[in-house]
Simulated assay, not measured.
Amino acid sequence: MQLRIEESIIHQFYQNDGQVGLRLAPSALTEDDQLHDLLVELTDVYTSKPAKGYASFIKEGEEGEPGPFPEQLTSWYDGQLDFVEFSQQSAKLLLEELQNYNLLEAGFLLVTRYQHISTEYLLVCFLPVKEGVTINPDLAVDRSSQLDITKVQLAARIDLTEWKTAPESERYISFIKGRAGRKVSDFFLDFLGCTERLNSKAHTQQLVDSVQEYAKQSELENEQRQALSKAAYEYCDDQWKQGDTVKIKDLSEQFAEAYPAEKSFESFSKDFAEQNSRELVDDFPADKSTLRKLVKFQGQGGGVSVGFDHTALGERVHYDAATDTLTINGTPPNLRDQLRRYFGIDS
């Protein structure tokens, strides 16, 4: 990834007698290969997180507390605060939130301003730590603390360029959404003083439903329906990998070239949204996990988990709606080996 670090700093949060403490860095980090590699790895991990939310700062008159972070950010960006002071104020604010939520989180707060292509970003990220074992210079075993980059859950990226040029936008802040049942992202949004505006998961599900219904009403053959869904998946997946949004108009044009129809997909999706009392968004960031529904059937419950590609339906997999029975011809090799060993059948 081609990125240029402008300013970066790390502050430490530690546990002490059941309390969380803060150690502030007195100066910004010197840019070197190690810092650059860390940021590249972190941005790669952040980008690859399948579930992200999109937000903007809470405005006056809206429900919720905007908090001091947006004001601090403005003061720094306008030159009234230097970067170190801004980051220290942010760290103190995060400490207050940790104490308010009674959370004992040990780790490091990374605040980085960087440029990628022509866009300027501010990455605010809480880096968790893990205990590990290493070999010291005396060739003895020693314990050490290491950053656990892959386990990052508290992170937000502010598109500073969009924030300044299009303040009315509702998605110049992206953040990692917490796992089901955990409200870690809510806590981090409170710290930043922003609120989620765009539900990418819901909009992606609406797209999936629209594509499937469009293929059905267009009376396409089964193979054509599968090809249409696959084309939609590949387009959306490419947009997701590039960090770009899904544009209904572009997808509609692709469909029109491959499968000309009386009604365009763009027009159909608008009617479909109205019929189902849904909001239609012309472009939106896709949710990776929901996108898979375009090309894969999967589900679990009652101790059973099943998943297979759309192309397998009617070939290796058959479904009888009358009896609600799924028949699979030929099991995956690893599953077959487990079953044969369980029943004592020689391979």
Score class of each variant (00 low, 15 high):
144 S>L: 14
159 D>H: 07
40 V>H: 09
11 H>K: 00
281 V>E: 03
8 S>N: 11
289 S>V: 14
139 L>I: 13
104 L>A: 13
207 L>Y: 05
71 E>N: 04
96 E>V: 03
261 A>R: 00
132 G>M: 03
321 A>K: 09
317 V>A: 08
346 D>I: 12
166 A>R: 05
231 A>L: 15
240 W>Q: 10
134 T>Q: 11
145 S>H: 13
178 G>I: 00
127 L>E: 03
8 S>H: 02
47 T>D: 15
57 F>S: 02
61 G>Y: 08
299 G>D: 02
39 L>S: 00
274 E>D: 08
16 N>Y: 15
326 L>Y: 07
305 S>G: 01
111 V>Q: 05
269 S>H: 01
279 E>Q: 06
8 S>C: 13
188 F>G: 03
337 D>R: 11
241 K>C: 13
214 Y>H: 01
36 H>R: 08
265 F>I: 00
93 L>G: 08
70 P>T: 01
8 S>V: 10
70 P>L: 05
25 A>E: 08
40 V>P: 02
126 F>P: 00
291 L>S: 01
259 Y>I: 01
112 T>E: 11
338 Q>C: 09
241 K>E: 13
187 F>W: 14
86 F>N: 01
224 Q>F: 00
101 Y>V: 06
286 A>D: 08
46 Y>N: 10
44 D>L: 12
44 D>W: 04
147 L>Q: 01
315 E>H: 10
329 N>I: 12
120 E>N: 10
210 S>Y: 01
72 Q>S: 13
257 E>C: 08
92 K>D: 15
87 S>L: 04
305 S>D: 09
278 R>C: 04
320 D>M: 07
22 L>F: 04
304 V>K: 03
69 F>Y: 10
290 T>K: 03
216 K>G: 05
336 R>P: 00
43 T>P: 00
58 I>F: 11
307 G>V: 10
190 D>Q: 14
218 S>D: 11
334 N>L: 09
295 V>L: 05
241 K>Y: 10
220 L>K: 03
239 Q>S: 11
223 E>G: 01
271 D>F: 03
179 R>Q: 07
183 K>N: 05
304 V>S: 07
291 L>P: 11
223 E>L: 12
